[in-house]
Design a binder for these strands. Structure first.
Length: 776
DNA sequence: CGTTGAGGTAAGGGTAATCTATTTAA
DNA sequence: ATTAAATAGATTACCCTTACCTCAAC
C-alpha cells in the first residue's frame, strides 16, 4: 500500500497442491509457510518458528517488514504477470499479530487465459521502512507514531525519506482505523470508544491513539483529529436553521471567536460554528456576481499575488485577504468564483468538450494510480486550456464519476476501467447515447425509472460484520468481493448501448481489497488470517466447458483482477447449467474458494439454486429485476428481522459451509426469496450479501427463458442471505456494501458504537458469529 | 526549571454534496 | 409554446493541515 519499492530477496518456490490434514485443509504451501483452513472457516497461516522469527525480528539493522509476492509463474518480475504482493507487518507490540497487505502489482494481457497456473511465492523485503525501536516493538510507520507538532518533526521525517498520506481519508484507511479501534476496545473490554476519547484522562488512555494508528500512514495527530470528529456527536448535526443563524450572530457578538463557547451554546462543534461564521459576513452579497464585483475580484487577486491579468493563478492566494478587499463576498465565494470561472475567462480559456471528457478519463487511466488521492490535478490541468483550474478539473471528474451510479462502492481502478469501457462503447455506438449527456444530476436522479443513466458497476460482496458487536474476529473473515460491470438491459442484447460489453461479453471485475490481518493462534508461527470489513481477496474464474473466461489484472488496477466473460452466446447455446467456479490465482484465495470441496458441493448448490430460481419465478418481473447479463448475480434481500432471524443460524451455517455443505435449507432460501417479493417495493436494499463460503459459484440459468439469465452467486456471509431487488432499470441495484463513513454511521444509530453491519444498524448479528472465532 | 509528550485552539485552504437558476431538449 | 430534463453556477456542511498554545510529568 504505502510501502516503497521492494526488491526480490528470496526464492520463489512452487506451491504444493491442496492437501488434507486432520482437521484442517492445507490450501497452499509456500516454502515452509502453509495456509490451512479449519473446519470453522478460519484461515491459518503456519510459519515455522525460525522463519517467523526472520520475518518478525530481523537483526536491528534490517527492517522487520517482509513483502510476500505471490505470483502466477516464473516470470514474477515480468510486468505482464499478475503478482499479488502481500506485505506482512506486525500490528502491535503487544500481540504478535501481523498485518498483511495485498496488492496485485502487475497485469496479464486481457485475453490471456489465467487458469490453473502454478502459483509461486517470493519474499520481498521492503527497503525503506522504519527503524526498529529499541524494544523491538517495531512500528508500521514512523509517521503514524509521530505526533508532528512541530515543523522540525515534519522536516526530520521528510529528511529521513518518509512520506505519508494527507488529504481525505480513503475508505480503506477508515476501515483500518475502525478495525483498530474495535480491536483495542475488545482487548480492553471497553464497550464504547467514547469512554476512552471523552472520559478517560490522558494517562488512562495512554497509547490509545498510537495503537489505533497502526497500519495507517498518517501522522498521529491526524489520526487523533479524525477520531475526535468521528465520535463527537455535536459534529454532523446538519444544516443550520434560520433560528440557529440568528442565535449564532448574537453569540458571535457576545463571545467573539470563542468558538468552543459558541458551539456549546448551540449544541454544535466549535469547528462547525467557526466554519459557519466564515460564510456569513454581513456585507456579503449572494447570487450572481456583478461585472463590477468580478472586476474587483480580479484586481485584488492579481494585486495580492503579484500577477498580471491573464496569468493563471490557482494557488497561493490568501482568500481571506482577497475577500477582505473585495468587500462584498466571502472568502469561499471569491475562491469559487475565481477558480471555477473568472481566472479561466480572463486567461482566454476554451470550452470543455466531449473530447476533453474522454481525454480526462484516458489521462487518469494512464496515470495508473490505485488511489484517487494520488492524482496530481495540478499536473493534469497544466496547459489544458479548457480546464478552468486543477480544482475545477477535479470537480469535473466527480461529475464524470457519477455516470457510474454506484461509483462509491467500487475501487478506483475498477471505476476507471468501467468508465473507459463506457466511453469506448459510446464511441463505437454513437447512435446510442448513454451517460454522456446524462451525467450531472446523476445520483440524485438515479432512482427515477426513466432513462437516467443506468450504468453501474455491480458488486457482490461478502461482508463480515465489523459492527457494533464487539467482535472484529467473527469467524467468517474472508470476504470475497466481486465487482461486476454490467448494465441494465436485457442480457440477450449484448450489444445494447447500455451494456458495457467487451468482445460481446460483459465485463466482470473481481476486486482485491487491500488488507487483512494475521492473528496469532497461540501455536507459535501460526496465524489466523483475518480481514476487516470491505476487504476481500482476489478471485479468478475458472473456465467451464461452455464458457470462456479470461482473467486479467487491470492495467491501471494494481488491486484487481478483471475477469471477462467473452462469449455469452456460448451460454445461450447450452442447455445445461453452467457453473463458473471462482478459485484463486493466489495462495489465499484458494482457501476461500476451497476448491476441493466445490466439486462435491456443486450438485447441492445446483439444487438449491434451482429452488431459488423457482421461487423467483413467482415474482412479478418488475420486482424481480430485469436482469441483465448472462452471468448476472442474483441477490436477495431480507428485512432486518429476517436477516437477524437468519443470522441466528450463522454458526452452524459456517461450520457446514466449511465442510462443504450448503448452509441454507432450500426452504429458507425459498422463504427468503418470497419475502423479498413482498418487500421489494420498498426500494433500496439494505444490504446485499451473497452466500456460501466455499466456492463462490456463479450459475447460469440459461435454460430458463422466462427469466432473463438469472445467475446465482453464492458466497459466504455472516449476514444471512439477503436478497435484493435487482432491477437495474430503476437503479435499485445498489451497493451491496455500503462502506459508510463511520462518522455517519455513528451518528445514524445514535449510540457511540461505530462500525455497522452494513445498512443494518442491528448490532446483534455478529454475536452468534463470535462463538466461532477460533483462536486456539 | 527546562524539556517533552500529549493534547488543544483558531485560522484557513480545501472538498463534496446539494441547492438554484438557466439552458437545452422533447 | 410549453414543459421537463440537464447543466452550470452558487452555496454550504464538513474535512484536513498548520501554526501556535497549554499543561502536566519528568
Amino acid at each position: 500500500m504505502f510501502l516503497g519499492k521492494s526488491q526480490v530477496l528470496e526464492q520463489g518456490l512452487s506451491m504444493s497442491t491442496v492437501e488434507e490434514e486432520s482437521d484442517t485443509v492445507t490450501v497452499e504451501t509456500v516454502n515452509s509457510v502453509t495456509l490451512t483452513q479449519d473446519t470453522e472457516g478460519n484461515l491459518i497461516l503456519h510459519c515455522p518458528q525460525n522463519e517467523a522469527d526472520e520475518v518478525d525480528s530481523e537483526d536491528s539493522s534490517e527492517p522487520p517488514h517482509k513483502r510476500l509476492c505471490l505470483s502466477e509463474d516464473d516470470q514474477s518480475l515480468d510486468d505482464s504477470t499478475p503478482c499479488i504482493s502481500v506485505v506482512a507487518v506486525p500490528i502491535s507490540e503487544n500481540d504478535q499479530s501481523f498485518e498483511v497487505t495485498m496488492t496485485a502489482t502487475a497485469e496479464v494481457a486481457e485475453d490471456e487465459i489465467n487458469e490453473g497456473t502454478v502459483t509461486q511465492i517470493q519474499i520481498l523485503q521492503n527497503e525503506q521502512l522504519d527503524e526498529i525501536s529499541p524494544m523491538g516493538n517495531e512500528e508500521v510507520s514512523a509517521v503514524s507514531q509521530a505526533w508532528f507538532t512541530t515543523k522540525e518533526d515534519k522536516d526530520s521525517l521528510t529528511n529521513k525519506g518518509h512520506k505519508w498520506k494527507q488529504g481525505m481519508w480513503s475508505k480503506e484507511e477508515i476501515d483500518i482505523l475502525m478495525s483498530n479501534i474495535e480491536r483495542y476496545l475488545k482487548a480492553r473490554g471497553i464497550k464504547d470508544a467514547t469512554e476512552i476519547i471523552f472520559e478517560m484522562s490522558k494517562d488512562e488512555r495512554k497509547d490509545f491513539y498510537r495503537t489505533i494508528a497502526w497500519g495507517l500512514n498518517r501522522p498521529l495527530f491526524a489520526v487523533y483529529r479524525r477520531v475526535l470528529r468521528m465520535y463527537d456527536d455535536r459534529n454532523h448535526v446538519g444544516k443550520y436553521t434560520p433560528e440557529e443563524i440568528e442565535k449564532l450572530k448574537e453569540l458571535r457578538v457576545k463571545h467573539g471567536n470563542d468558538w468552543a463557547t459558541i458551539g456549546a451554546a448551540l449544541g454544535r462543534s466549535a469547528s462547525s460554528v467557526k466554519d459557519r461564521c466564515r460564510l456569513m459576513k454581513d456585507t456579503c452579497n449572494t447570487g450572481k456576481w456583478t461585472e463590477k464585483e468580478e472586476k474587483r475580484l480580479a484586481e485584488v487577486v492579481h494585486e495580492l499575488t503579484s500577477t498580471e491579468p491573464g496569468d493563471i493563478v490557482t494557488q497561493g492566494v490568501s482568500w481571506a485577504a482577497v475577500a477582505e478587499r473585495v468587500g462584498t463576498r466571502s472568502e469561499k465565494q471569491c475562491r469559487s468564483k475565481w477558480l471555477n470561472y473568472l481566472n479561466w475567462k480572463q486567461s482566454g480559456g476554451t470550452e470543455w468538450t466531449k473530447e476533453d471528457e474522454i481525454n480526462l478519463i484516458l489521462r487518469i487511466a494512464e496515470l495508473e494510480v490505485s488511489d484517487e488521492n494520488d492524482i496530481n490535478w495540478d499536473l493534469l490541468a497544466e496547459g489544458w486550456s479548457s480546464v478552468r483550474s486543477p480544482q475545477w478539473l477535479r470537480s469535473k471528474w466527480w461529475t464524470i464519476k457519477r455516470q457510474i451510479a454506484n461509483h462509491k462502492d467500487v475501487s478506483f481502478p475498477v471505476l476507471i476501467k468501467g468508465l473507459k469501457q463506457l466511453h469506448e462503447n459510446q464511441k463505437n455506438n454513437p447512435g446510442h447515447q448513454l451517460a454522456e449527456n446524462k451525467c450531472g444530476s446523476g445520483l440524485a436522479n438515479s432512482n427515477s425509472s426513466s432513462g437516467v443513466q443506468h450504468v453501474q458497476i455491480r458488486v457482490a460482496r461478502l461482508e463480515e460484520s465489523t459492527g457494533s458487536a464487539p467482535s472484529p474476529m467473527a469467524a467468517l473473515q474472508i470476504p470475497v468481493q466481486i465487482t461486476h460491470v454490467s448494465s441494465t438491459d436485457s442480457p440477450a442484447a449484448t450489444v445494447d448501448s447500455e451494456t458495457i460489453t467487451l468482445n460481446s461479453g460483459t465485463l466482470q471485475t473481481f476486486e482485491i481489497l487491500p488488507s487483512f490481518h494475521l492473528q496469532p493462534t497461540g501455536t507459535p508461527g501460526t496465524y489466523l488470517l483475518q480481514t476487516s470489513s470491505s476487504q476481500g481477496l482476489p478471485l479468478t474464474l475458472t473456465t467451464s466447458p461452455t464458457m470462456t473466461l479470461t482473467a486479467a489484472a487491470a492495467p491501471a488496477s494494481p488491486e484487481q483482477i478483471i475477469v471477462h466473460a467473452l462469449s455469452p452466446e456460448h451460454l445461450l447455446n447450452t442447455s445445461d447449467n453452467v457453473t463458473v467456479q471462482c478459485h484463486t490465482p493466489s495462495v489465499i484465495i484458494r482457501t476461500v474458494a476451497a476448491e476441493d470441496i466445490s466439486s462435491s458441493v456443486t450438485q447441492t448448490e445446483l439444487t438449491v439454486d434451482a429452488d431459488i430460481q423457482s421461487a423467483d419465478l413467482t415474482d412479478p418481473p418488475d420486482t424481480l429485476g430485469t436482469n441483465t447479463f448472462p452471468h448476472d448475480i442474483h441477490q436477495s434481500k431480507l428485512s432486518d428481522e429476517e436477516q437477524s432471524a437468519y443470522n441466528e443460524d450463522d454458526a452452524s451455517k459456517f461450520r457446514e459451509l466449511m465442510d462443504g455443505v450448503m448452509v441454507r435449507t432450500e426452504e429458507e432460501i425459498a422463504d427468503a426469496s418470497l419475502k423479498q417479493n413482498e418487500d421489494s417495493h420498498s426500494g433500496l436494499p439494505s444490504t446485499y450479501v451473497t452466500e456460501d463460503l466455499g466456492s463462490p459459484t456463479i450459475e447460469e440459468q440459461v435454460d430458463q427463458p422466462t427469466i432473463d439469465d438469472e445467475t446465482v452467486l453464492i458466497v459466504p456471509s455472516s449476514h444471512g442471505f439477503i436478497q435484493a431487488t435487482d432491477d437495474m432499470d430503476n437503479e435499485s441495484v445498489l451497493p451491496l456494501t455500503t462502506l459508510t463513513d463511520p462518522i455517519l454511521q455513528h451518528h445514524g444509530d445514535g449510540s457511540h458504537i461505530i462500525g455497522s453491519s452494513l445498512g443494518s444498524p442491528d448490532s446483534e448479528d455478529s454475536k452468534d458469529v463470535e462463538d466461532l472465532v477460533s483462536c486456539p
